[in-house]
Design a protein around this nucleic acid. Sequence first.
RNA 1: GGUGAUGUAGCUCAGCUGGUUAGAGCGACGCACUCAUAAUGCGUAGGUCGGUGGUUCAAGUCCACCCAUCACCA
Length: 672
Amino acid sequence: MTDSRRILVTAALPYANGLAHMGHLVEYIQTDIWVRFQRMLGNDCLFVCASDAHGTPIMIRARKDGIPAEEIIEHYHRRFQEDFAAFHIRFDNFGSTHSSENRELVNLIYGRLQSGGHLQSRTIRQAYDEKEGMFLPDRFVRGTCPRCGATDQYGDSCESCGATYAPSELVDPISVLSGTRPVERESEHLFFRLSEFEDELRSWASGGALQDSVRKKLDEWFETGLQDWDISRDAPYFGFEIPDLPGKYFYVWLDAPVGYMASLLNLARRRDDIDFESYWTPDSDAELYHFIGKDIVYFHALFWPGVLQAAGFRVPSAVFAHGFLTVNGEKMSKSRGTFITAETYLQHLEPQCLRYYYASKLGPGVEDIDLNLDDFVLKVNADLVGKVVNIASRCAGFITRLADGHMSAALPEPALHDQFVAGAVQVAESYETRHFSRAMRQIMALADRANQYIDQHKPWLMAKEDGRETEVQAVCTQGLNAFRALVIMLKPVLPGLARAAERFLGENEWRWTDIEQPLLGRRIEKFKPLLQRVDPKAVAAMLEASRATMENTRPSTPSTEELMDEITIDEFRRLELRVARVSKAETVDGADKLLRLTLDLGDGQRQVLAGIRSAYQPESLADRLVVVVANLEPRKMRFGTSEGMILAAGPGGEDIFLLSPDSGAVPGMRVS
RNA sequence: GGUGAUGUAGCUCAGCUGGUUAGAGCGACGCACUCAUAAUGCGUAGGUCGGUGGUUCAAGUCCACCCAUCACCA
């Protein structure tokens, strides 16, 4: 193919400090589908990624665990590779930002920024933990909000009133590392003069490189004015030391995007057919796309193109941002078992099912998507098994039995095949524009057409009549070709299914254009189920396993709270603890921390006002069993009387965990 | 707090620049069929399009305000 495009695609770098989970997979699956589609078209499309190895969190963890940071990042690097491979995410290279190539490129870029006069040294004041001997990022300082007085807030903004401020403005600030009060210290930092590139960035941003909503977001930043970007950090830090500034390191967000280049360089050094330079020169004919989450638009749509320009490289052709993942309509939650790691999923479910489900929900925009597990089961079973695979399943038997496995030499209804060929053009358009949900809808509409066709011709009736074998064979050949076209269209999403179908039909490595020519006269293999239905029990088991794993691995917050004075058993018995069922849970107007619960204690209802709204949605509580202090003196509150207290553990905020009895307990039972 | 995004049938989502009785898939219900991994086909029921107010001959679609959710504020 002479007019094939040269494309370099990246997915954001996973941080090497935790396992890949369902949220990560949205992005890698989205990107992988797009890349596989490009390859099926015959384009020269490279897909690189890397683990993101630097920064404060990894440094601190290494310190705490007393092991080298290299060991941590190496561990997660390997786990990422295993997980991604299992989900059929096929990178051309998966590198690390802690690599010689990255160091080389970061230094090269640094040199160019320096000689181009794009850097400036400035003294800043920052919180410093004297006990730990290190400067503290804003998130590592907590204290009381200077505006609303909420306690235990981060150093950059208040979650309660939304105020933003500097850590030094906090009332009673403490370091989360040592618990001591930080002091202010001065330090020399290097700044990248981003504002010099405002004009270039503006025209790049309005030139089609960004989605509309992302562009609007950038406009907003342009309005407020671009500020210079602090690219250095003080030791101790895990990263690359700045060559001529001992004790200073490059900020992780400087070297992370360079990691995209480094990963390609690492690959190019092993492969003769890849010319690294040609991808990065300002006049490069290659396309460069970054798939990212909407939370890191800032780094990819401002800093990164700014740095690239300053260093004399090309800018990205486009940045594609996607939304966040919720599970069952809520943020992933460890306590609800919806914080599902890739590994836990793999132990219970088939990876391609997730690929299909995500594909059926992903569009070109930045909207969040929801992994609704009930919907997941229904959709995968109905679409993939019931519609698509079923077509092969219901046709293959006849071909095998009545025609010795041979398909007919011609299609009885070429017009139907033409519909599929025409449909494939639409589907391709949808893939290209990352409108995967539309692609899946278009494909399923075609699958419906195929099933209708088979129903109209009823091969199972003809098969009972003598002498109509040829007709049955023809109808089923038509059906199998419909199936073949559908699976080719689904191949970017379901590569494993496609490979199995290729073997079943005796073919190899389908490309997109293979849809056009029907498969005729071919001897097919005996049909074997190509994909199993999803068992809802497996989903339930996965949630249960997630919950269990998270409880085990959840870092037990070192309980610094002292135990209270001893009490006697009689004193304890004065507590009347009862099992209760939540019969109603609702929010309370005017109170953003409370939920009004109506509890069934077996012998009657009572109302309890509980301060758990930050951790629980009212709907999630209905019918659940809790433990209540039943003989607590009723308390009048502004919003009504609270007649008891429900038991929960945790420090507060999102970390509140209701206690619940094992199954078998019924409302009214005494807890002792 | 500021800014951006989102809010359409039980569920998941389409609805381009405003224009006939608001669409699909799944689920539910009914019928048909039995080749197929209890799959498939046909049909029925279900929504005053988050709320309030406005612009217009006409608004899910434009404007204002409000509510809820998500994100960002370097």
